[in-house]
């Protein structure tokens, strides 16, 4: 859902997005031990598969962003993992574009990092119920933050997009609820079965 196609954003926004994405991916790769690569790849393919699933929400159906969950289980590796996912979606399905890849990555990955940090702050190695609550806050918050960032880059690209930017935030609100419930369930299961996964080291 956070796929802005090519041709919408202004050039300065595109350049700043690409620069921030490059820095984030470089940092993410630097902390990525080669031994962890299969693990991170496995998780990012799970998240990719999950992002293709349509969930019913009222009359429409939504598909999940899952960047909150990605930030919680991957930590900084979420940056390269989300870049890979977005590149695959652009090439395989035509969602998003090539030049906006940087902006789209930043829109997804920065909220992911924030969600990861927030989750660990709230969870502190507690039980599954605590993980569920923290996961709901982090998962829903990541969607909200992504919506705000998408709206922000639209508004920065030109005054004519201001109405559209407000609409973006509005349309992401139902997704926020669905994603909070989804993330809470997934994390309470992980906290029960494999709590070591939730320490953000993939």
């Amino acid at each position: 859902m956070a796929h802005i196609p090519d041709g919408v954003l202004s050039n300065p926004v595109l350049m700043v997005g690409a620069a921030v994405a490059a820095a984030g991916v470089a940092l993410g790769l630097k902390g990525l031990d080669p031994v962890r690569v299969p693990r991170v790849a496995m998780l990012s393919s799970v998240l990719f598969v999950a992002s293709l699933v349509h969930l019913p929400a009222g009359p429409a159906s939504v598909h999940l962003l899952l960047n909150g969950l990605a930030g919680i289980v991957l930590g900084w590796a979420a940056f390269p993992a989300l870049l890979v996912a977005l590149l695959l979606q652009a090439v395989l399905f035509g969602f998003g574009g090539l030049v906006v890849l940087g902006v789209n990555t930043v829109d997804m990955a920065l909220p992911a990092l924030a969600a990861g940090a927030l989750f660990r702050l709230l969870w502190r190695g507690g039980g599954p119920r605590r993980a569920a609550v923290a996961g709901a806050v982090a998962g829903g918050g990541a969607v909200l933050l992504t919506a705000l960032m998408v709206a922000g880059v639209l508004a920065l690209s030109g005054r004519e997009f201001e109405t559209a930017a407000r609409l973006v935030i509005l349309t992401h609100l139902p997704l926020m609820v669905v994603e909070a419930a989804f993330t809470a369930a997934a994390l309470s299961l992980l906290a029960r079965v494999k709590p070591e996964m939730l320490r953000g080291r993939g």
Partner: peptide, 12 residues
Amino acid sequence: WCSIGYLFGMLM
């Protein structure tokens, strides 16, 4: 939503 969440938790 939670059932699908459990599914993907298991998958992870």
